[in-house]
C-alpha cells in the first residue's frame, strides 16, 4: 500500500463566532475534529452549517474565535493545510470543458504536471470520455463529479462538503457515497453538511447538530447519531 500524498490533519474550532451585522450565524462553536474523522453536520436551514464549512475553508473570516489545524497527534499543525471544498454550487465554469476546468484550477494551484493530474482525476470520477465536453452540457450528477474532481486536485487532507448530495439522483448518490468512502478510508478528514439520512450520511463516524448557530448536539458528548441525522427539520 502506498503512503497517502497528504498529511492527515484534524481541525479545531475554538469559540468561533460569525456575525452579519446584528445577526449571529455562529455562536461560540467549540469543536475538535480528529484527523481521519468523518463528521456530518445537520440542522435546519440557517442553522450555520454552511458558514462553519466556509470558515473551515477560509473563505469566510470568523468574527471572533480561532481556527486551528491539527496533526494526527492533536498538536497544532505547522504545515500549510490543504482543504478541498465542494459547495452546493458546482464552483466550475459552464463555458469551459471538464478538462479545461481542471487544468485551470490545477495551474492556479501550481500543481506539477497538471495535465496528468487532471486526466487521472477525470478518470477517477468517470468522466474521461466527456473530458472535451462543455460543463454546461452536463447533468447535475456529472457536474458534481467535476466539482469533486476539482476539490481533489491538491490532494487535500480535509474535505469539506456542503450538501453534496443535493440534486443527485439515486445512482449519483451511490457514486458519491462510494467516492467519499474511498476518501475516508484513505485517511482524509471529512466534514459535510447534510439533510436527513442517506447513503452519504452512513459514512459519518460522528454527527453534530447545529441550531441557531450553536452546537446543539454532538455524538462525541453522548448524542445518538441516528437521532441527530433524523431530527425534524434537519
Amino acid at each position: 500500500m502506498t503512503a497517502p500524498a497528504f498529511t492527515p490533519t484534524g481541525i479545531r474550532f475554538e469559540n468561533i463566532e460569525k456575525r452579519y451585522g446584528s445577526l449571529y450565524a455562529l455562536r461560540r462553536v467549540r469543536l475538535e475534529i480528529r484527523a481521519g474523522e468523518s463528521v456530518a453536520f445537520a440542522g435546519r436551514n440557517g442553522s450555520g452549517k454552511t458558514t462553519l464549512l466556509r470558515i473551515a475553508a477560509r473563505l469566510v473570516r470568523a468574527s471572533s474565535g480561532q481556527l486551528d489545524f491539527l496533526t494526527s497527534g492533536g498538536e497544532p499543525a505547522d504545515f500549510a493545510t490543504q482543504t478541498g471544498f465542494v459547495a452546493h454550487a458546482t464552483m466550475v465554469y459552464d463555458e469551459l470543458t471538464a478538462e479545461e476546468n481542471l487544468l485551470l484550477f490545477a495551474k492556479l494551484q501550481g500543481i506539477a504536471d497538471s495535465s496528468a493530474r487532471a486526466a487521472a482525476l477525470l478518470d477517477e470520477v468517470g468522466l474521461s470520455e466527456r473530458r472535451k465536453s462543455l460543463v454546461r452540457t452536463f447533468s447535475r450528477g456529472m457536474r458534481q463529479r467535476v466539482a469533486i474532481a476539482r476539490a481533489l486536485l491538491n490532494e487535500p487532507s480535509i474535505l469539506l462538503l456542503d450538501e453534496p448530495a443535493t440534486g443527485l439522483d439515486p445512482e449519483g448518490i451511490t457514486w458519491l457515497a462510494n467516492t467519499l468512502r474511498r476518501m475516508r478510508d484513505a485517511g482524509r478528514t471529512i466534514l459535510m453538511s447534510l439533510h436527513g439520512e442517506s447513503e452519504v450520511s452512513a459514512l459519518a463516524t460522528r454527527a453534530v447538530r447545529l441550531d441557531a448557530g450553536f452546537v446543539a448536539a454532538d455524538t462525541q458528548t453522548g448524542a445518538n447519531l441516528h437521532s441527530i441525522l433524523t431530527f425534524a427539520g434537519a
Partner: peptide
C-alpha cells in the same frame, strides 16, 4: 457568482 466560481478562484490563487 452563478456557480460560486469566485470561491473556487479564491481557494486556488496565492
Amino acid at each position: 457568482q452563478n456557480n460560486d466560481t469566485l470561491s473556487a478562484l479564491r481557494l486556488s490563487v496565492r
